[in-house]
Design a protein around this nucleic acid. Structure first.
Length: 354
DNA sequence: ATCACCTGTTTAGCCTGAAC
DNA sequence: GTTCAGGCTAAACAGGTGAT
């Protein structure tokens, strides 16, 4: 069970998920005033919402300064504070009382939202508000947490139609990468045909070598972790960055193998090919290191956030998923492969006519 | 009118102690 | 043991005041 209060990663993965944050804003209904394009809440408003003392929010700020600053907490001073104060007073005076959100009402005369003489004020954004809710322990915060989790799960389900297996296909880059990789895969299998003596295991064994070199798992392990059935293709679940790297490996190794075979002036045995792969791996280690690390981190982090799958061997590579990534896979631009193919139909038709 | 200083308010940070 | 409340102080700051 995810415990938000003690998992920085899980908190980040929710706060970076813009689609979910928007949905939470709609459903929770704790409305703030818009300032600089973001909804803002003062410390007092948060304390009131969570039914804790203002000092408790202060403590939280002390202990989690960096995290909350990253979620949009700021101390307003000078001109910006002046503008914010004006905004609050104009809202409170203009709006009909019934329309004013409970968070905005001056519920206690001694405890204004921002004291008129305040020279600085701690201000949260909506993300900051949610972040506080994930760290506090008040009953209000607990119920907010469970609501947040419900909504996040709901958003994932609606966006993905309950199937996260092919979420990798929802970004723009997937299709071109898959097509490129398909072509290099052919180079690779052709090379295996030409330069390695007949052996029915050669494709799968050398493919596994590539997988293991890149993300430490053989196809079988990968299949288990993502709970793929035997009829489902492993590659159709891979992220574009991983596919690109596999394509590099396949193309590079195909060429390397050709040279070795031509030099020896004969076909090579599968066991020789395994040794040659080790040479290839050693030779390219420094070149591939950065892309390999990126691919591992992408795979481990995204699969954790989107597929709830843990790659045990890539544990140390799990990071937070960036908000860019959430947009890529769940945002406006993300669409299923079917839709993407329809969208690109013209391109394919043109290619076909050639 | 301008400058330096004073005053009141708020936050940050540290500590203690009560309640669960 | 953990969580929350409250006391305290230093520092930051806006707005006042009063001397020049």
């Amino acid at each position: 069970m995810t415990d938000l209060t003690n998992s920085f990663l899980h908190r980040k993965n929710i706060l970076n998920n813009n689609a979910a944050v928007q949905e939470i804003y709609k459903q929770i209904g704790f409305l703030g005033v818009k300032f600089d394009g973001k909804y803002r809440f003062t410390k007092q408003q948060l304390a009131y919402f969570f039914e804790v003392d203002v000092r408790t929010i202060d403590r939280l700020l002390e202990d989690n300064k960096d995290e909350l600053a990253a979620s949009g907490y700021e101390v307003f001073t000078g001109v910006r504070l002046r503008l914010l104060k004006d905004l609050y007073t104009s809202i409170v005076t203009i709006d009909d009382e019934d329309d004013i959100n409970v968070g905005l009402i001056n519920h206690d005369a001694d405890n204004e939202i921002i004291g008129s003489k305040a020279s600085s004020a701690g201000v949260f954004t909506y993300k900051g508000f949610l972040n506080v809710g994930m760290l506090l322990n008040s009953d209000k915060a607990k119920s907010l947490r469970s609501a947040i989790l419900d909504i996040v799960i709901d958003v994932l389900n609606t966006k993905l139609g309950g199937n996260a297996k092919y979420i990798n296909q929802r970004e723009e880059e997937f299709l071109p990468s898959a097509i490129r990789e398909y072509n290099y895969r052919q180079e690779f299998t052709n090379a295996l045909d030409f330069y390695i003596t007949d052996n029915k295991f050669k494709y799968s064994q050398l493919t596994d070598k590539i997988y293991k070199s890149i993300f430490k798992e053989a196809a079988k392990e990968y299949r288990q972790i993502l709970k793929l059935s035997s009829s489902e293709s492993v590659r159709s679940t891979m992220y574009s960055e991983v596919l690109d790297l596999i394509a590099s490996y396949e193309n590079g190794f195909a060429d390397f193998l050709r040279k070795k075979s031509e030099k020896a002036e004969r076909k090579l045995s599968l066991s020789e090919a395994h040794l040659i792969f080790s040479d290839f791996e050693e030779m390219t280690e420094a070149i591939y290191k950065p892309s390999k690390e990126k691919a591992r981190s992408i795979m481990a982090s995204r699969d954790m956030a989107f597929r709830d799958a843990l790659h045990e061997k890539l544990k140390e590579y799990v990071r937070e998923v960036s908000s860019d990534d959430f947009n890529k896979f769940l945002g406006e631009k993300s669409i299923s492969l079917e839709e993407r193919l329809l969208e690109n139909k013209d391109v394919f038709l043109r290619l076909k006519d050639r």
